[in-house]
Nucleic acid binder design. Structure first.
Length: 595
RNA sequence: GGCCCCGUGGUGUAGCCUGGCUUAACACACCACACUGUCAAUGUGGAGAUCGCCGGUUCGAAUCCGGUCGGGGUCGCCA
């Protein structure tokens, strides 16, 4: 080894030891006489002192050192002179008096500073990712990621789970996300797909009797990117046999409560994790992934809205839509400009507009008159109507009601995001809190108006709740599934379900989804045949692993917890992927490019 | 596919709205010199950008307009 100790581990108990260290020059302070170097390795920083009197030759050579040079230093660990300790670093009580210096490799001046955390253009960071990863924050994130991985593996291992790998080259299943395809050289004109998730494979492992399976596995989806979505991402995928929904939820709550306690104890969670139905979540928050760190719950105002003279309220309800809103506490003083920002905010998310009703401070709701109400639409409202809306929403003097009318899903989407925005503006989302929750009782299917058919909400292997089974023949849209999500702070962390394990039910589901018998055989024949051979009841869940780490790291961007992420246009700025390939490679694969 | 934001020395920004007063400013980094207890070392000096690219308007463009490329956010999409 070129080193005997790690920089960051040195302590007063090591004083007197002769050590050899190796690492990067983090910072250099040249006093003409004394030269100080902060030497950095994975473990942290240690101060090296070059003394021109005791070791003149070594001191002379230290004169040439610059940031990010890789050096090896021999020296003696000494206690720093009284008064020169540095409480800001873990090794601040000691320093290493260098007796020899070897430059292992010099460095160009890096394109951005490694030794501070000032913001750098992300394209530049990605181009020089190996330098970006040297920075403290990224080192911390990837170490956290490792500890999360390790905790999960230990936890599941202790409960009898087996980690089993599944193939990366599998059969394309056109439904769901767009597949990444891999052409076959040996079978001309045929393609593999990279897995969107190991869904069918893990179900086949249940058929095989592996009982409790998990995998931390790369998945691929060729869809547009977002701050929390990459084309290749990692899932914590697991599946169990002979379980019911409650077994899985209980296990996952235990896993995540323990994970946070062990890995990020500075973050607060509360147990039990709340469980709300999909219908409740949509009613109260307008989304199936609510941020539960704050209230600002939505209320339905449709019945009052139809009594008003306001056309947009009445027509929304007449056309089968909704009128919902929530209270922005203490925001009655919002300026015209601030209100316009909110209106633009909801319009950018599809809503026609936003009705704001501000209640002046100073009078109780009962004493208030229309003159105390500030709104674009006061002339269409009576004080009684305003008062009843305020009472229902929980608005009082000094508050502002925010109301959206329109088609239900559009109004919900706009209000859900507006709720997050108001929560953010008012500082209601405590960054030290992880508000985990389960959302349960998802609908089994939703109507696809474009294609005029039912689509699976989760996936076609999800089983219906037993009591809703008859609805499959009469009113599929009302049938609830045994599907569940885990959410946290407004992010969907995972989805899972109890699966169908009987051939006739799976066939029935495929038929409901509009597949012909030929298509069923072509796409899912392997699964249905497996179901003929004694398939246990089973279910599972799959987490967006990167999102878990992102939330634990306190980041709002998945790229911050991935070593080599891709840009929003799915390119790799470091390696330059994707790239053209040699014509011979295409020929080997029986491919020809269209112009 | 739609919408929005950003692009100025190595890095981060100001200047842009309201074109000329800019020889494009500031901080950090870089280079040189000085300096024996600093730790964001300090002091003095120096070098470094024709303002992403192309075109247009104008007597004159970093500044206005169009296009394009790159990055980011978002809607659609993500069973």
């Amino acid at each position: 080894m070129l080193k005997t100790r790690d920089c960051g581990d040195l302590r007063p108990t090591d004083v007197g030891d002769r050590v050899t260290l190796a690492g990067w020059v983090h910072r250099r302070r040249d006093h003409g006489g004394l030269i100080f170097i902060d030497l950095r390795d994975r473990s942290g920083l240690a101060q090296i002192v070059f003394n021109p009197e005791s070791h003149p030759e070594t001191h002379d050579r230290a004169d040439a050192l610059r940031n990010e040079w890789v050096v090896q230093i021999e020296g003696e660990v000494t206690r720093r002179p009284a008064g020169t300790e540095n409480a800001k670093i873990a090794t601040g009580e000691v320093e290493i008096v260098a007796t020899s210096l070897t430059v292992l490799n010099p460095s160009l001046t890096p394109p951005f500073a490694i030794n501070d955390d000032s913001p750098v253009d992300e394209a530049l960071r990605l181009e020089y990712r190996y330098l970006d990863l040297r920075k403290e924050g990224m080192q911390r994130n990837l170490k956290l990621r490792h500890r999360v991985t390790r905790y999960i593996r230990d936890f599941l291992d202790a409960r009898g789970f087996l980690e089993i790998e599944t193939p990366m080259l599998i059969k394309s299943t056109p439904e769901g996300a767009r597949d990444y395809l891999v052409p076959s050289r040996i079978s001309p004109g045929h393609f593999y797909a990279l897995p969107q998730s190991p869904q069918q494979l893990k179900q086949l492992l249940m058929v095989a009797g592996f009982d409790r399976y998990y995998q931390i596995v790369r998945c691929f989806r060729d869809e547009d990117l977002r701050a929390d979505r990459q084309p290749e991402f990692t899932q914590l995928d697991l599946e169990m046999s002979f379980v019911e929904e409650q077994d899985i939820l209980a296990l996952m709550e235990e896993l995540f409560a323990g994970l946070v306690e062990s890995v990020t104890p500075h973050l607060k969670t509360s147990r039990p994790f709340p469980r709300l139905t999909y219908a409740e979540a949509m009613d109260r928050y307008g989304t199936d992934k609510p941020d539960l760190r704050f209230g600002l719950e939505l209320v339905d105002l449709a019945d009052i809205a139809v009594e008003t003279e306001l056309g947009i309220f009445r027509s929304a309800v007449d056309q089968g839509g909704t009128v919902k809103g929530f209270v922005a506490p203490g925001c009655a003083g919002y300026t015209r400009r601030q209100i316009n920002e909110l209106i633009e905010f909801v319009q950018a998310r599809g809503a026609k507009g936003l009705v704001t009703i501000a209640l002046a401070e100073g009078k109780s709701l009962d004493e208030m008159e229309l003159g105390d109400v500030r709104s674009q639409v006061t002339r269409f409202l009576s004080m009684d109507q305003v008062r009843r809306m305020a009472q229902r929403a929980g608005a009082g003097p000094g508050d502002m009601m925010l109301i959206v009318a329109g088609e239900t899903s559009v109004a919900n989407t706009a209000l859900a995001q507006l709720r997050n925005e108001i929560g953010r503006r008012l500082g209601l989302a405590d960054p030290s809190v992880l508000a985990f929750a389960f959302v349960v009782d998802f609908p089994l299917v939703k109507w696809n108006a474009d294609e005029k058919r039912w689509d699976a909400l989760h996936h076609p292997f999800t089983s219906v709740k037993a009591e809703d089974l008859p609805l499959l023949d009469t009113d599929p849209g009302r049938a609830r599934s045994q599907a569940y999500d885990m959410v946290c702070n407004g992010f969907e962390l995972s989805s899972g379900s109890i699966r169908i394990h009987e051939r006739h039910l799976q066939e029935k589901m495929f038929e409901l989804l509009g597949y012909t018998p030929d298509e069923i055989e072509q796409r899912f024949g392997h699964l249905l045949r497996a179901f003929d051979y004694g398939t246990p009841p089973h279910g599972g869940i799959a987490y967006g692993f990167d999102r878990i780490v992102m939330i634990l790291a306190g980041s709002d961007n998945i790229r911050d917890v991935i070593a080599f992420p891709k840009t929003q246009s799915a390119t790799d700025l470091l390696m330059g992927a994707p790239s053209p390939v040699d014509p011979q490679q295409l020929a080997d694969l029986h491919l020809r490019l269209l112009e």
